[in-house]
Design a protein around this nucleic acid. Structure first.
Lengths: 220, 220
DNA sequence: GTCACAAATGACTAAATAGTCAATAATGGA
DNA sequence: TCCATTATTGACTATTTAGTCATTTGTGAC
C-alpha cells in the first residue's frame, strides 16, 4: 500500500514493468503528457525562472493541484524535460548508417543537432537554459549533470572508433565540447543575426569547413 | 529644477558634460558602482530572473530604496550591465595592431573574446543570459537589441577591410555569427566538459583550425 | 555652526506565487 | 448498480517580493 508517491514515479515504474495500461493509467499518462508539453512551451516562452506553476497548469488546462500530484516542484519537471530532450537527441545520434570515416561522423553529429533544433526550437531553448542552470543553481546540479554528461559521452563514443590508434580521451572530450559548442552557439547567434532561410544556406559550407578543421585537429 | 529623475540618468549626463565631480557626486557614483557590481555577481550566481532586488542591495550593503533611486527596475540595471560588458568587448576589439590579413584578424577577434571571458566569467554568463532574454522576453527586446546589434556590427566592420572585392554583407554577417557562436558555445560547453587548464591548451589548435576554415569559407 | 537640499534608509503595503487540502469526479471490481 | 480507490480540482493560507514613502543622514553654500 503506497501512499503519496508522485504519479510520475509510478508511471515510470509501470512503463518499465510493461504493465498493461488500463483506462485509469491512460488518464494519468495523458495528464502527465499534457503537463510536460505545457511546461516545455511555457519554459521556452517565459524562461524557466519566470514561468509559474499556474502558467503550466493553465496552459495544460488542468487544476493547479494536479501539478503537485505529478511533480514535486518546478525543478523536477525541468529535469524530466531535459532528460527527454537529451534522450531524443542521443536516439537520433545512434540512428546512422554508411559512415566510413571521422569526417562523415562529424557531419552526421552536426546534422542531427541541426535538424533536431530546426524542428524543436522549444527544446533548443530549454537545453540552453539547462546548460546555464548547471552553473547558476547548485541545488539541482545532481539532477542536471546526469543527462548532460551522458550527452557528451554519447558524442565521444560515436567518434572514438574513427580516432587514431592512441585513443586520447581528453582529445575526444575536447572535440565533443567543440561540436556541441559550435552547434549550440551557432544557432543561438544565428537567431539574432539571420533569417531562417539564411541559416539553411549558411550552415552547409560552414559545417563542411568546421568538420575539416576538427578532423585535422584530431589527426594532429 | 528637475525632480524624480533617476540618478543613473543624471550621472550619465554629468559624465558627458565632464562636470567636475564634488564629494556628493562621488557618493552617488560610488553607490551606483556598488549596485552594478553587486547586480553582476548576483545575476551571474542566481540567474537574472531568480535574483531579487533585495539580493542586489544586500550584496551591495545598501538599503532597498536606494536601488529604486538609481534604476527603474531589474530590466534597466540588466540593460546597463549588458551595455557596459559590450562596450568593454568592443573596446578590446578595437585595440589591435600589426594585423595584415583576414586570418590574423579572425585570430584577434577570437583571442579578445577568449581573454575577456577568461577574466570576466560573470560577464560571460550575463551576456549569455542576455542573448536568451532576447528570445524569451519580448518586453525588453528594444533595450537589449541595441548593444547586441552593435556588437555584431563591430565584428563585421573589423572583418570588412580584409574581404574580397565584392563585399557581400550577408557573408560577413554569417561570419560574425559563426565567430561569436563558436566562442560563446565553446566556452559554455567547455565549462561542463573541461577543467580550466584543459581549455587553455585546447583553445589554441582549435582556434587555428577554426580560423583557417572560416577564412577559406570567406574566400569561397 | 546653520540651513537647504539631495541621497540613503528600511519598515510598510500591495501584489504575486507556492504549496495545501477538503470536496468532487472518474475508474473498475463486485 | 453500488462502492472503494485514486485522480483531479480550485479555493484557501502562507510566503515571498516588488515598489513606496516618511524619516534619517550626508553635503556644501553661507
Amino acid at each position: 500500500m503506497e501512499m503519496d508517491v508522485l504519479l510520475n514515479d509510478s508511471l515510470i515504474s509501470a512503463m518499465e514493468a510493461k504493465n498493461p495500461v488500463n483506462r485509469a493509467d491512460k488518464r494519468v499518462a495523458k495528464t502527465n503528457k499534457k503537463l510536460m508539453t505545457a511546461a516545455l512551451q511555457v519554459f521556452s516562452e517565459y524562461g524557466v525562472d519566470a514561468a509559474t506553476i499556474e502558467d503550466i497548469t493553465q496552459r495544460a488546462d488542468l487544476g493547479k493541484g494536479t501539478f503537485y500530484r505529478h511533480f514535486k516542484d518546478k525543478a523536477e519537471i525541468m529535469a524530466c524535460l531535459v532528460e527527454e530532450a537529451i534522450n531524443k537527441l542521443t536516439h537520433n545520434l545512434r540512428n546512422k548508417n554508411n559512415i566510413i570515416n571521422l569526417e562523415e561522423m562529424l557531419e552526421h553529429v552536426i546534422n542531427v543537432h541541426y535538424k533536431f533544433f530546426q524542428e524543436n526550437a522549444d527544446e533548443f531553448i530549454l537545453l540552453f537554459q539547462g546548460r546555464l542552470f548547471l552553473k547558476l543553481d547548485r541545488q539541482i546540479t545532481e539532477q542536471m549533470e546526469g543527462p548532460f554528461s551522458r550527452y557528451l559521452e554519447e558524442i565521444e563514443n560515436l567518434l572514438l572508433p574513427y580516432m587514431s590508434e592512441k585513443r586520447d580521451i581528453l582529445r575526444i572530450r575536447r572535440l565533443a565540447c567543440a561540436v556541441a559548442g559550435f552547434v549550440f552557439g551557432f544557432f543561438s547567434f544565428a537567431m539574432i543575426g539571420m533569417e531562417s532561410e539564411e541559416i539553411e544556406t549558411s550552415i552547409k559550407p560552414l559545417r563542411q569547413s568546421f568538420v575539416k578543421s576538427l578532423s585535422s585537429f584530431l589527426v594532429q
